[in-house]
Design a protein around this nucleic acid. Structure first.
Lengths: 142, 142
DNA sequence: CCCTTTCTACGAAGACGTTCGTATTTCTCC
DNA sequence: GGAGAAATACGAACGTCTTCGTAGAAAGGG
């Protein structure tokens, strides 16, 4: 009784959590990560000229981002102040993990290989990367 | 000559080239990359159980992929044989470049840093990556 | 106090994505 | 050669994304 029939048998997640940002949302999060805190106006002003949006569009995007849990807001007077609820580092990790799973058979070494092959990395950059690996190898040893 | 000026701004491309695959499209391309050549039926059968689609849905996705230029087809009798028009390597490169630009300020070293920090990479994997860097450093020297 | 400015809330419109059903074509083989 | 199986073509239905306009609330200064 009570519960309506769910013949389907498939999951039960009430809210489908949106793990990833859409194109425009990413642009907005990037601005927020840079600004730290910002009003709709602040973010709108910070958009690259090529991607300017109407003020109300910017407000809509921020409202959606809050609905999805990517940002939080506090009210100051009549104005909302927005802040990222998710660090850029965290989102970078999530995205990389996803890319690795979906496109690199979960083999990070393959991913790095492609990166190193494709980019004209400077000797300096290569050195940096190597240092990271070495550090990690040393740390793991302990 | 002939080439019309395209100062910058935005393009008037009649066809908006879709650079990237959607979720379902990527799943299909992954199957095609594995199979090499395949009919609608082949691809449908190869889908993970959790992602099974009706036969006509599979056919639709492949038709769309062809419209977008990601696959080509040849007719064999009444049946289409599909094949990826884009190598997995190429698509990996494109995706990595995009991620690097959009989320890592175009700094591949940062990307690798995050990867190395987040994953519990085995010593072996780390060694592989290191070898790749070293090889590249050596090659660049010449 | 009321006019202007600035904000939020919400809905509309159009593009795209996903899934499938129906209609049509094509092949096969008794 | 006709019936049935298997393929393709297409469009409907529904959801999400992106963009914006309109409407109404909140300040605040003359």
């Amino acid at each position: 009784m009570g519960q309506p029939e769910r013949p389907d048998a498939e999951m039960s997640d009430n809210k489908k959590k949106t793990q990833f940002l859409t194109e425009v949302e990413l642009e907005f999060m990037t601005r927020l990560w840079e600004l730290g805190q910002a009003t709709v106006r602040d973010v709108q002003d910070a958009l690259a000229p090529a991607r300017k949006l109407a003020y109300t569009s910017a407000a809509t995007i921020l409202r959606i981002l809050e609905q999805k849990g990517f940002v939080t807001s506090t009210k100051q007077g009549k104005t909302f102040i927005y802040q990222a609820a998710l660090s850029k580092d965290t989102y970078q990790s999530r995205s990389l993990k996803n890319l690795s799973e979906k496109l690199f058979d979960n083999a990070p070494a393959t991913l790095v290989a492609r990166l190193v092959d494709d980019y004209d990395l400077t000797e300096e950059t290569l050195g940096e990367i190597r240092a990271l690996i070495d550090k990690r190898l040393r740390d793991d040893k302990r």
